[in-house]
Structures are given as structure tokens and as C-alpha cells.
Write a protein that binds this DNA or RNA. Structure first.
Lengths: 208, 208
DNA sequence: CACATTCTGTATCAATCAATACAAAATATA
DNA sequence: TATATTTTGTATTGATTGATACAGAATGTG
């Protein structure tokens, strides 16, 4: 998919922009302003292209939005998930996940707070046609990646055999939503970090 | 506050609408369409008043939005919280909270999905000035109401003396965010309900 | 080089946006 | 009843919205 579009030589003036780059720029605008809040002027400016080029490539605003969502998913845009999978010890991995969640929920440097899927996309799911399906896929995929890691830890003996991987995976993702929510209300990262020891135990605990 | 405005006789043509009623109607529109997605035309139509009346009473769109948020808070708009406080047994109360969350996240009869604060307001917190403060207050208030109930149960002896009320209260609210998130992706209420037994135990469990 | 093809930039479209001007309507007071 | 005061409905404001028409620029092909 990333290899067979290299030699495609087309007749006519060549495209002057990188599809992925402008798509990521568009995603950032949607992330910061929401679907309705992001105007085509905002988008074309951030993407560095003009209106007609945008419409020729993506169709319309809605389709650009859907493309941005897919781009986020296919380019591993979720930092906490990457942090989780990058840590070898499971307890540190869970902790890293929560820390990453709090970080990207409170770093208001670029104005894009929280999670692109968890706040921006989720809000527009009932409004923009086609979003709900992409959101569903993304959630299922995240649940799967988290629970598969737990299953792997079970096979290593690092987690008890009766550990409920799927339930705990869902719990992790749902806790993320809570952190994003609180961060949006202005709670400091310090305060959010205060209970991650408790919550790490909650996720990995064997009580039921 | 609801009593001393009855006898207030003012000179001039009297107002022809009920402030609370039109405010609730406005809230429903924001709830369903989001802040940017809700046009003044949508709002005036749902509120049953004309533009000039709206602007005379509330100022502008932003102030109307803030008034709607405050109205939601002061009128006990959160159904799950009411369900929680209406149940005498603490285990049933927690369960009722979760069930109510799932219900109002998936009943798409009126198009207003999830939680007004948890999805609509939270998204606009970084965009509309004044929203963040109201959101912060609402979250703190909810945390407090939940944890106070837990403290009450402790004093009755229905919960162990070392029960971490505040942490579990926050956990409950954060789980709510997770349910709203999943519901927006189209997950059925049946599937969401499948793990509430597990989560009720998680909230009330004494393991740490 | 001439032509067909495709993309880019300017300039602009009708529609809708949030917000108002203004006069008629409805009240209290005198 | 006459006047002052406030709200209402109609009609409209300039600005912005998402989306295009069109001509010129940049490529491959013959």
C-alpha cells in the first residue's frame, strides 16, 4: 500500500503536496477546533494548499474528516497505546499508559487537548455520517491490542491464569476517557497523577 | 431565588416566555448538535422565541450556552446521579448509576446522546471562554456527592472503615466517561450492560 | 515543438452565520 | 385616556460558511 504507488506516473501537472502531511495538518485542526469549529479556511491554511486542491483530493469537508480519522489510526497516533506497548514490564507498561494519557491531556501547547478520537471524533459520531463506524473500529482495535498484551503476560506467567484480560483492557480505555474529561476541566497534571498508583493496582489487581 | 421573583412587577410589556423552559430547550439543542453545530436558527426555533428576545435575555450565543450549562447543574440534570442517590442499598445504588449511564448514553430517541457535560460541554471547554470553569465546578460537585454517599455508608457500617471514598467516587465518574464514549461508537446497551456486575464489584471492592 | 491532460491559484458563488434596526404591541403609571 | 417603558415580530445587516468557475501553469506524449 505504501510501495506500489511510487512508480505510478500520471499525465498532467503533478500534485505539489504530500497527502499524509496535509492530512495530519488537517487532523490537528479538527483536533483543536472540532468538526464544526474547523472552517475550510482554517484547514487550507494549516494544510498549506488551496481550496480546489483540497476538494479535488478529498471530495468535501466530511470526507476529509474521515480521511483524517483513518490517517490517525493507521499512523499509530495514540501516544498512550505506544507507551504501553513500548514498556516490557507489565506494571510499568500500565503506569506508562496512564502517565501518557495525563500528559497528552494536559499539554496545551498546541491547543489540541486530550485524545483526537476520545474527544473530537466521539462528539461528532452522532452528527457526521460515517464517523461512528470508524470510531467503533478504533475502540475495538484498542481493546484488542491492550487485552492481547495481557494475554501475552499471562502466557509468560507474569499475570495469573484467571486474569480477565478483556475486562481490564476495557477498564483501561474507559479510565482514559475519565482523565481526558477531567483534564478538559482544567485539573492539573499533578493532581491527575496522584492516583495512578491506585489505578495501576486496580487494573492489575486480581480481586474480582 | 425562586420565590422573590414572583411579585416583581415591571413597567413595560411583559416577557412572554419562561426562562427555565427556553433554557432547557436550548440545552437540548446544544446537547444534540454541540456548541458550533447549534445555529441561532436551531436555537430560536426550539426555544419558541425570536432572535431579539433571545439576545435581550441572554446576551449572545456564548452567554446562552453558559446559562444552559448552569441550568443543567442547578436543575439536577444528571440522571445517573439521581438514580444513585435514590437507591438505599449501596450496591444497588452503584448498579443503578451504571445502568442509568448506559441508558442515557444509548437512548437515541431525541438525538441527544450521552452526557451533556461529558460530551458536549467537555469538547467546548477549550474553545468557549467560561466553559472550563463551569465544567470544573460540575465535576467537583459530582465527585463530592458520590464520595459523601460512600462516607455515609461507612458511618452506617455498610462499607469498611478504610474504604477510599474519594478515589472510588472519581472512578465511578471516569467509568461513566468510558460508557458514553463506547455508546457513541454504536455499541449496544446489552453489550455495555454485560460487565456492570464486574464493575460494581470493582467500585465497591475492598482490594487495593 | 504542439497537444492533451492534470493540477494550482485567484476570485467568487449562493447560503448560512451570529447579531440588530426598527416599528408595532403590550404593559404600568399618571 | 395619555404617556413612558419594555418586549415582540419582521426584515435585514455585514461577515463567514462550504464549495466552484475559470484561466494559467506544469507535466507526459506524439
Amino acid at each position: 500500500m505504501t510501495k506500489n504507488d511510487v512508480v505510478k506516473k500520471k499525465v498532467g501537472r503533478p500534485i505539489s503536496f504530500d497527502r499524509n502531511k496535509v492530512l495530519i495538518a488537517a487532523m490537528r485542526v479538527f483536533w483543536a477546533k472540532g468538526y464544526d469549529g474547523a472552517s475550510m479556511k482554517d484547514l487550507t491554511k494549516a494544510m498549506g494548499i488551496n481550496g480546489p486542491s483540497l476538494y479535488a483530493e478529498f471530495g468535501d469537508k466530511r470526507e476529509l474528516y474521515l480521511a483524517a480519522i483513518e490517517c490517525y489510526g493507521s499512523h499509530n497516533g495514540c501516544a498512550p497505546l505506544n507507551a504501553f506497548e513500548g514498556e516490557s514490564d507489565i506494571k510499568l507498561a500500565v503506569r506508562a499508559f496512564l502517565v501518557a494519557v495525563i500528559e497528552y491531556s494536559t499539554e496545551n501547547g498546541r491547543g489540541a487537548l486530550g485524545c483526537f478520537l476520545g474527544s473530537c471524533v466521539a462528539t461528532s459520531a452522532g452528527e457526521v455520517e460515517g464517523v461512528r463506524e470508524l470510531l467503533y473500529e478504533a475502540i475495538q482495535d484498542t481493546d484488542k491490542r491492550l487485552s492481547e498484551r495481557f494475554e501475552f503476560e499471562k502466557s509468560k506467567g507474569c499475570l495469573p491464569a484467571d486474569f480477565p484480560s478483556v475486562e481490564r483492557a476495557k477498564l483501561m480505555l474507559d479510565l482514559r476517557q475519565g482523565y481526558v474529561f477531567r483534564a478538559r476541566s482544567g485539573v492539573s497534571p499533578t493532581e491527575l497523577l496522584s492516583d495512578i498508583a491506585f489505578r495501576t493496582k486496580l487494573i492489575l489487581g486480581t480481586c474480582a
